[in-house]
Design a binder for these strands. Structure first.
Lengths: 338, 338
DNA sequence: AGGACTCGTGGAAACGCTTCCACGACCGCT
DNA sequence: AGCGGTCGTGGAAGCGTTTCCACGAGTCCT
């Protein structure tokens, strides 16, 4: 028994003068161990710097102690979205005092998605949280075949039966648009998200709802599709100003796009909110920092990440396939831009 | 032998009418298998949808087939840095046709860093690539104790003996600054990166070098510390304009900061490059897209990620502790901003 | 024709852990 | 005093692989 590699349970057992079984019990915090034995084992663990071998443990427990957040985005662009960063932060925070680890997996194309599928099927993780689904996304199907619990961040596009947690995107967009209409704005435009994404669709639907609720028709000139990025927002606003110079309000489906719109408006010499009112979505940090500060729609990120984890962990624990989902209320945050 | 869980080697063996050993051999592509046996096994694998259990395999091979990219950044802010996204993209691309998986691990505080240390020590990964080190970073020490191969993206701050791959930051900054001086600019400022990061320090050092090479002293009024973000760049440029209204050139240590500077300059009514020339660093996508397009310093990302992987994989294969490092040349890309 | 190969194959040990089961020792009760 | 309990403990089986070793059947040489 040389001490070349990492120390094993046996070595600890020998040093502590007990059996492997007892060491295992101590390491796993079983109550059925005498104080003396426990202490001897602890000492041995410390002097040997023993760390259980995860592979060996997983082989018998069928648990890895890690869950994956998988991002399926053609571009690596998603990284720059503050919403994504918030989700990561929220999940990490909730996991902080558990022994569950969070790993991020990114797939840019179909090949990488297949690779992630293999990774999951091979048993590297206990469950996965899936984010950012475009219309043509293969991952839900790939993962469904793995029999590993999955919960989506965001409603699935095709209404399939999976667990998910989402914000009330339509409701938030409706509130935002209504806020603009209630101010007496006559030409309320929108910069939508990508319309092959649910969040893009739902926020656009909310915009339409609000308009129709005020007895207005949707004017195609006032709708431009964006891509959730600041740069996309800038370009979209420029297009809008060209197509409809009389625009006096705009609902951008994300804060970065709203910030981009702000820049385009400044470049065009329009004052915000006097000439054009702007509302964003997400209540990202940038919404507070920009000039003027953005009126925006806040999502309860704390709650959403907690629910995401609750749903996933319950499915992992119980091993059932019950699908369950939650939709969280949004809140309009009024600042200077509208 | 019920088929409740995932199928095992045994089940495949029985179905194919061979032994476990043979199945293992064909699954692992050993040449010492007869064509008939191979075919029978393949068929069985296909009908059973057999996927080897990674835990069991790792237990004996001591390999997990995954490497980690760990990000140690107090903020989740690093996600929004295009340089980070490029590294991820490069690594994924190089790994695409291997069976090695890349997972991302993020640590925001000391506690999460310890947790990552445990994750690694438990044997979840074969090696780690460590990114974005601040001065007070604990991770190199934590990881050193795990005996898992580590290579740093970026020179270590304290000159410790570890493998790393870095761009010639000082050289790039020197070239950028020289480019400005050679145009006859008299008041060349810099917006530095965080000075507790190596990239921040080295790029600042290159700026000083170039200045001194031209027989100029560094003017403290012309040096403002930024944080690599666009917003930080905007604020820094504003400070610069206030402290030194006669500034006629600025070297920003990252493209996002340069873009921020561009905005501040536009807001202040300065023309670029006529009144003030601007040079960035990284040659991010945004450098091409902004107005005017940025002159910037390109790093050979393709090479850097390839080297990162080469160094790491060699250490994994050979199991040696040889430290080795590479510094890659940068290249000045001239566009309209300077 | 017989020995020395190579080649494909299967049995079995090993990887490091958890957990079932059995077994003594001790307790408090009747 | 004897009996049923609880409690702490150790032995051993088992998780799904890989891989060493041995073995029989060919093949090729002298």
């Amino acid at each position: 028994m040389t001490t070349v590699g990492a120390p094993t349970l046996d070595e600890v057992a020998v040093l502590a003068g007990v059996s492997r079984a007892t060491v295992s019990r101590v390491v796993n915090g079983s109550p059925r161990v005498s104080p003396e034995a426990r202490q001897a084992v602890q000492a041995a663990v410390d002097t040997l710097r023993y760390v259980p071998n995860r592979m060996a443990r997983s082989l018998v427990t069928r648990r890895t102690g890690t869950i994956a957040l998988v991002l399926s985005e053609s571009d690596t662009q998603i990284f720059s979205d503050p919403f994504f960063a918030s989700i990561v932060r929220g999940l990490s925070a909730h996991l902080a005092d558990t022994e569950l680890h969070l790993v991020l997996l990114a797939a840019r194309d179909a090949r990488e998605q297949e690779k992630i599928g293999r990774y999951v099927r091979q048993g590297h993780v206990d469950g996965v949280i899936l984010m950012s689904l475009h219309g043509d996304d293969l991952l839900p199907d790939i993962l469904a075949r793995t029999h590993v619990p999955v919960v989506l961040s965001g409603r699935p596009l095709d209404g399939r039966a999976v667990s998910f947690v989402d914000a009330d995107n339509a409701g938030g967009a409706r509130a935002a648009t209504r806020h603009l209409l209630d101010q007496g704005r006559r030409r309320v435009a929108t910069i939508t998200g990508p319309l092959d994404m649910v969040a893009g669709q739902d926020r656009y639907a909310g915009y339409r709802d609000a308009l129709e609720g005020h007895g207005r028709a949707v004017d195609a000139d006032l709708v431009v599709e964006g891509d959730f990025t600041e740069d996309g927002g800038l370009r979209a606003m420029a297009t809008l100003l060209e197509r409809a110079p009389d625009v006096d309000a705009v609902f951008a489906a994300s804060d970065p796009m709203a910030v981009g719109a702000l820049q385009a408006l400044r470049a065009a010499g329009r004052r915000v909110p006097d000439d054009v009112a702007v509302v964003g979505f997400d209540d990202a940090a940038v919404a507070r920092a920009c000039d003027p500060p953005l009126t925006t729609v806040a999502q309860p990120l704390e709650d959403m990440t907690r629910l995401l984890l609750e749903l996933l962990l319950r499915r992992i624990e119980d091993g059932d396939d019950a699908v369950e989902s939650r939709v969280c209320e949004t809140r309009l945050v009024r600042r200077a831009s509208a």
